[in-house]
Amino acid sequence: MSRFRTIVVGFDGSPDSQAALRWAAQMSGAVGARLRIVHAVGLLEHAGLLHEHATVHRETALRVAEDAGAPAADVEWTVVDGDPCSALLRSIAAPDPADLLVVGSRGSAAHGGTLLGSTSLEVAEHSNVPVTIVPASYGRA
């Protein structure tokens, strides 16, 4: 059995998160792992104040995963209440722990090179499983 049973990837619809999903889908195919796509729902999205919502993101995410070769049966879409960093850290923890966390290098809110506004740097700092950070340019045609 593969050491990597579950891979979690954060997805907010941004180009970076789509690239991260492409990479994670390829990795899940390569090692035979389940791919859990996690979308964090914050205050504004819950209130319908953002342009795109979980249902739109779900369609995009499943299409990107399929195009990258992840078997549909191994792909799981999960919506988690919280800010992206906390939601991802909770998603890799028990009772259904992950073996690898994949994130885009910049989420939809990222700025500069500081920890503030950078989900990837924050989760890399706090994650207890390996983290792979993927730039938006990865796998772009």
Binding site: D12, A40, G42, L43, L44, E45, L50, D83, P84, C85, G107, S108, A109, A110, H111, G112, T114, L115, L116, G117, T119
Partner: peptide, 20 residues
Amino acid sequence: NELEAFCAEGGGDIDPDTYA
């Protein structure tokens, strides 16, 4: 210190909900 510096440099979005 980071928050102070982030604001001094103009701020920005911290996450989809939160900004400075």
